[in-house]
């Protein structure tokens, strides 16, 4: 069991993904994003909320699905969350790392 050194202790897996998506707050998102050198904007939050909704619905997330979300295209997704968009966005959104290969 790992915990993140944030303003309050949050349980994460070994790779820093939240164990419980319900512990997520927008403030926490800012803190995780800062640790990844990403400054969150409203657009980021639109993507994060979409990811959280889809995860709650049990959808297997992929880059392609984010690209078809109507919120961002794939290029914008890479720009918003550089250095591995799906995994970084999932981490900031407080959901498990997506297992998709595409």
């Amino acid at each position: 069991m790992e915990t993140m050194t944030l303003s309050k202790p949050i349980e994460t897996d070994a790779n820093g993904y939240l164990k419980d998506p319900n512990q997520w707050t927008p403030e926490l998102a800012h803190e995780i994003a800062n640790s990844l050198h990403i400054t969150l904007t409203d657009k980021h939050f639109e993507v994060l909320n979409w990811l959280r909704t889809k995860h709650a619905e049990g959808v297997a997330l992929s880059i392609r699905k984010v690209g078809n979300s109507g919120i961002v295209d794939i290029k914008q997704f890479y720009q918003l969350f550089p250095g591995g968009p799906l995994k970084n966005a999932a981490k900031i959104a407080g959901i498990p790392k997506p297992v998709s290969c595409i």
Binding site: S62, I63, R64, Y78, P85
Partner: peptide, 18 residues
Amino acid sequence: KLDMPHVTEFLQMIEAGG
């Protein structure tokens, strides 16, 4: 069925990713 894109769309995804 696995939601794999066609080749041209895959190439577009790769280009979009840099």
